[in-house]
Amino acid sequence: MATRELTAENFESTILTPDAESGIVLVDFWAEWCGPCRAFAPIYGAAATDNPDVVFAKVDTEANPDLSGAMNIRSIPTLMIFRDGIGVFSQAGALPRPALDDLLRQVRALDMDDVRAEIVKQQAAASAP
């Protein structure tokens, strides 16, 4: 599957209702002038081809500064992963292909009921007096 370009207009709908059976969306925040971004692009593209059950998307930080700011992007490339609309991973820096494959394996293995329960627990603790 080819990568998809995300903007402020389609970011939320892509994350919340991905057209992937797995519910997984990888987002690469990048810029054309960024050397590490350009080096990571073929790795990301090959992973997209090899994982058609996952949505691979890219946000051009130069063209979408408001979206990048809203997502608290401080350096690029930054990779974020969402599953079932929940952010489960965020890290600045390019990844080698074995690390990206391992990361996908871990995200697929997540028990999302446990993740949701942990979020509820953390929200309750944060709102307790």
Rank of each mutant, 00 (worst) to 15 (best):
T3W: 04
T3F: 05
R4T: 10
R4P: 05
E5W: 00
E5R: 06
E5C: 01
L6T: 05
A8V: 15
E9S: 05
E9Y: 09
N10C: 07
N10I: 02
N10W: 07
S13L: 14
S13E: 15
T14S: 11
T14Q: 01
T14W: 06
I15A: 02
I15E: 02
I15L: 09
I15R: 00
T17I: 13
D19V: 13
A20Y: 13
E21Q: 15
S22L: 11
I24N: 04
D28F: 06
F29D: 00
F29V: 08
W30G: 05
W30P: 04
A31Q: 10
A31N: 03
E32Y: 12
W33V: 05
W33E: 08
C34Y: 05
C34Q: 08
G35K: 12
P36I: 02
R38N: 09
R38I: 06
A39M: 15
F40C: 00
F40A: 02
F40P: 09
A41W: 01
A41H: 06
I43G: 07
I43L: 10
I43H: 04
I43V: 14
I43S: 09
I43R: 01
G45D: 12
G45Y: 04
A46I: 12
A46C: 13
A47E: 01
A47Q: 03
A48L: 00
A48I: 01
T49F: 12
D50C: 06
N51F: 06
N51K: 06
P52E: 09
P52L: 09
D53S: 15
D53M: 15
V55Y: 02
V55K: 01
F56Y: 12
K58S: 06
T61I: 04
T61A: 02
A63F: 11
D66K: 14
L67F: 07
L67K: 08
G69R: 02
A70E: 13
M71A: 10
N72V: 04
I73N: 04
I73G: 01
I73K: 08
I73V: 10
R74K: 05
I76L: 11
I76N: 00
P77C: 08
P77Q: 00
P77N: 03
I81V: 11
I81M: 03
R83K: 15
D84W: 08
D84N: 15
G87D: 15
S90K: 08
S90V: 02
A92M: 14
G93K: 03
L95H: 07
P98Q: 03
L100V: 00
D101E: 14
L103E: 03
L103D: 04
L103F: 10
L104T: 02
L104N: 00
R105F: 01
V107N: 06
R108A: 04
R108T: 00
A109Q: 11
A109M: 07
D111I: 03
M112G: 14
D113N: 05
V115L: 13
V115K: 12
V115R: 12
A117W: 12
E118V: 10
E118Y: 09
E118W: 11
V120E: 15
V120K: 15
K121C: 11
Q122E: 12
A125F: 09
A125H: 10
A126M: 10
S127G: 10
A128M: 13
A128K: 14
P129E: 08
